[in-house]
Amino acid sequence: MADSPPVLPESRLGSTLRRDSWWVEIIPVVVVLGGFGIYATLRAFEGTYYSWGPYISPFYSPLIDPQHHWWPFSPALLILLGPLGFRATCYYYRKAYYRAFFLDPPACAVGEPANRKYRGETAFPFILQNVHRYFLYLAVLFLIFLWKDAFRSFFFDSRFGVGVGSIVLTLNVALLTLYTFSCHSLRHLAGGKLDCFSCASFGRARFSTWRGVSLLNERHMLFAWSSLISVGFADFYVRMVACGAIHDLRLL
């Protein structure tokens, strides 16, 4: 029963009695999200190598003013704000980057830097997270274009065919669709906002929709990451093919 030194740790960054390596949770977020951010920025400004044959990079679709009649910069810059806003205000990504980049908190029951003023999402800029649903509307709009792109990617000089790129683009838009349709705001709008499904008009239908979205929503994190990687890869693939670094393999 020997006494040991005082232990209640003071709050400072990283102070915890957790025995596990809590920081391993945030490292992949920093690497992948950070890496994607750098790659996407570079690619957005690049303004070239965004299409080849029937393929168009999701970073550049829908393609606006590629001939620079009125927009002098990369057309991607007109597009990317939408997806960026959707992901930045996403309820899942918020958790990921508040933890990994803002260390607020770095992990559960782990200390934060002392004497920091905290206002959460009650004040600018984070109060803007509340407009997430408007980015959802935009994201749905983008999906229409991306599905069109995916469809087109199966037609080489107006003849049906399948290339690796067709599959990459289709898989990507499928994952983006899953990500978009598992959105928390959509879950709310689809039916979650009702207090009483059985007494509302179209209550049963909205209940089923809500339940469907809820099922997807449980995997929102999975879709968030997989679609992030797929969208980056789709762009990368198109770029590589467009600049001639690799040849698109025709499967059919």
Partner: peptide, 27 residues
């Protein structure tokens, strides 16, 4: 509720496995 930045530690510790963040706070 705006102070909550949905970092989900509440959900992680809940012994009743209530999905606090996804099912209560976000809605």
């Amino acid at each position: 509720i705006g102070f909550c930045n949905i970092t989900k530690c509440c959900t992680e510790v809940c012994p009743e496995e209530i999905r606090i963040t996804d099912n209560a706070i976000i809605p």
